[in-house]
Design a protein around this nucleic acid. Sequence first.
DNA 1: CCACTATACGACACCGGGTGACATGTTCGT
DNA 2: ACGAACATGTCACCCGGTGTCGTATAGTGG
Lengths: 194, 194
Amino acid sequence: MTGLRERTRRAVRAELADVALRLFAEQGFDQTTVEEIAQAAGLTKRSFFRYFPAKEDAVFGGVDVTGEQVVDDIRARPGDEDPWHSLHQVLRRWQQQIHASEQALASLRLIESTPSLRARLHEKRAHWRQQVSDALRDRPDAGLEAFTADLLTNAATAALDTVSHEWLRSGGTADQAALLDRAFTLIRPALPAR
Amino acid sequence: MTGLRERTRRAVRAELADVALRLFAEQGFDQTTVEEIAQAAGLTKRSFFRYFPAKEDAVFGGVDVTGEQVVDDIRARPGDEDPWHSLHQVLRRWQQQIHASEQALASLRLIESTPSLRARLHEKRAHWRQQVSDALRDRPDAGLEAFTADLLTNAATAALDTVSHEWLRSGGTADQAALLDRAFTLIRPALPAR
DNA sequence: CCACTATACGACACCGGGTGACATGTTCGT
DNA sequence: ACGAACATGTCACCCGGTGTCGTATAGTGG
């Protein structure tokens, strides 16, 4: 069973992320020091870093978890499916999960408007993007070259980025799913016949 | 005429970038301190930052210059040209310029293998990517929506990234221009009729 | 209930990237 | 040759991030 130790740890972590996000939203990411966050949550700067490896990670929180999810989802798709279609479906589902959380919404806004966070997001994405590319190439049926698989996943990420950006530009009113569909339709790759 | 002041400034800057690149290649980016670089070039840490706004910028050097170039090149293209084709042509030319320089080659290798540098590159790219997108949308002929223009430029960037990556994977032997053509052909967008 | 150990925390010192301020020299226009 | 613009070094400082140590507290076996 989960002991008290782990429970409090999770609780503190959540509280810390919460406080951090609030402060970031109020006064900006760069204008908020780690010490400030820690103090507002009732602990020390040193202890903040015992919960998060870096200041940026207080923002991302659960996002990295979903990264693994995408890889699994891709692997769960039928191996003979059009790769582009697989990416489309998986990312659409992933996107809806993000959209469901109020927290994730605020994070997105913050990330999009803070250069260093945008960069960090790309870094994280690049990590599981490579895994997705590998997953596509591992399919027994379609012999995808590394170059092609990379290109597809990169393009899919580009689509996702564009949708996020447009959605934020619309103030959160736009229909994300529809945008994603448009994006995936517009740049549908012309794969060689198999 | 360019006075001595500006000439020496350029020279020092180049020297600094040179020394930095050498040290980075030898012992890694993170393992090299700014003070080390400055000392090796015969000045102070403080002075290093008078030539480069950040440690990372010693690596990029001339890259940001070419960023502006891309925007101009896009604007110089005929306004009724297919946007995707415009991007293709401009990026191909840009890529060849990069390829011509021995320096840029080493930089690319370093950037690709250093997370913080990769992040910084994306940050820089995002900046002029937005300008390119605006340039496309400014065309009087084809009324591109912001979403579409963003999608195209994002996809073009994705293509460029994939090519760079593949090229490095091949150890620099692959034909970049051919790869770029393949990429741009594979994900050619299906634009609505105008 | 009591000892024993693992864990969490605060405190402190330290590193490296980056900035502001000031003093001193050097180059430029006139 | 003179004053203004500029470059450099020095010093102090901020902030993100890490290593270390002492100490309190929670979890566990008897």
